[in-house]
């Protein structure tokens, strides 16, 4: 990996939420949504984060885009420390970082026509009036939408079309970093494929660094250059895509892989069904967060939290087995 070429770097990021206690005398507990995550994304690269609900993947995306303040750690964007940025500087930064959301039906103001929504972005960020219409038209054709979509209100468009428009809107300001939070989860399979193809095309043509958040292993495998698996706020495994899926090391990743329903009959797979539910992230003990559900759980796992260790080829695993 090219270190100097990274667009965004988060080091030891942590996000804690204070949970007020219902009892007066008792001190409130803390929910650790993101726990010392280090992440680095280079230009034209898609970094995938997979995990189940509540694992902190969305929070991580919100931390990196400064939608939420970090409790600890630093964020460096294009060589500039933006951890403590606020006010006007933060609003100026927004044009360089964008988000694409899961629910395409909700990501446009229902009372605003698409054209007016796109024009507003241009107006707020002072894109000259002479250039803006051409720029919008060019982006629309790039995401495969006809110009007449501009006259529609969101309720007249389908989920796939709205997601294309949301992507066009996020590209309007020429961002260098995009967080795509489950961008295809709400879409039908055939449309999902269209959007994934589009994302892969745009990454090349716009030289964007992207954080791709998903709960589906196959989707992440299809589009990402590098993948991290997240469980209860921490990365448990991180590797370049090819390497990760060739040598899955962490027991949680293995279970997650085995839980993916597959249409292929010839892949004889070992079925690992995890017992129990995902525990709450409030008041976690000192050990490995996955230990209670892990089939390899040892004494050591309950006492000491494993750190990410490099197994070679950029493959990092946080597990006492390795």
């Amino acid at each position: 990996m090219n270190l100097s070429g990274s667009v965004i770097e988060g080091t030891n990021l942590q996000k804690r939420y204070h949970i007020p206690s219902r009892k007066l005398a008792e001190k409130g507990k803390e929910l650790v949504a993101v726990d010392s995550v280090t992440i680095k994304i280079g230009r034209s690269r898609i970094f995938g984060v997979v995990g189940e609900s509540g694992c902190g993947k969305t929070t991580l995306g919100r931390l990196l885009t400064k939608m939420e303040p970090t409790s600890d750690g630093t964020i460096v964007f294009n060589g500039r420390d933006i951890t403590r940025l606020s006010g006007k500087d933060l609003i100026a930064l927004r044009s360089q970082m964008q988000m694409v959301f899961q629910n395409p039906y909700g990501s446009f103001n229902p009372k605003q026509r698409i054209g007016s929504a796109l024009a507003e972005v241009a107006k707020v960020h002072k894109i000259p009036k002479e250039i803006a219409p051409d720029k919008i038209a060019a982006l629309l054709s790039e995401v495969g939408m006809p110009i007449d979509a501009l006259g529609r209100v969101p309720s007249e468009l389908s989920g796939g079309q709205l997601q294309r428009l949301a992507i066009a809107r996020s590209l309007l300001l020429g961002p260098e970093f995009i967080v795509a939070d489950e961008p295809v989860s709400a879409l039908d399979v055939s449309v999902q494929a269209q959007i994934l193809n589009l994302i892969m095309d745009l990454r090349e043509s716009h030289a964007i660094a992207m954080l791709f958040i998903s709960h589906e292993m196959p989707v992440v495998k299809a589009v990402c250059d590098e993948v991290a698996v997240m469980y209860l706020g921490s990365f448990v495994e991180k590797a370049p895509t090819q390497e990760l899926f060739a040598n899955i090391a962490h027991p949680y990743t293995q279970a997650l892989m085995s839980a993916v329903p597959s249409i292929d009959s010839d892949i004889a797979k070992e079925r690992i069904i995890l017992e129990g539910d995902i525990p709450s992230a409030i008041g976690l003990g000192p050990g490995c967060p996955f230990a209670p559900r892990c089939r390899h759980g040892m004494e050591r796992c309950r006492l000491e939290k494993p750190q990410l260790r490099d197994m070679g080829a950029g493959h990092l695993v946080a597990c006492h087995l390795h």
Binding site: S190, N197, K221
Partner: peptide, 24 residues
């Protein structure tokens, strides 16, 4: 056939374009 081709599967090679159905 088109629907099955558009499913991202683990067997699929990474970074390859997925099959998709045009239109809606």
């Amino acid at each position: 056939a088109a629907l099955i081709a558009s499913i991202p599967t683990m067997a699929l090679e990474s970074q390859k374009r997925l099959g998709s159905i045009p239109g809606r």
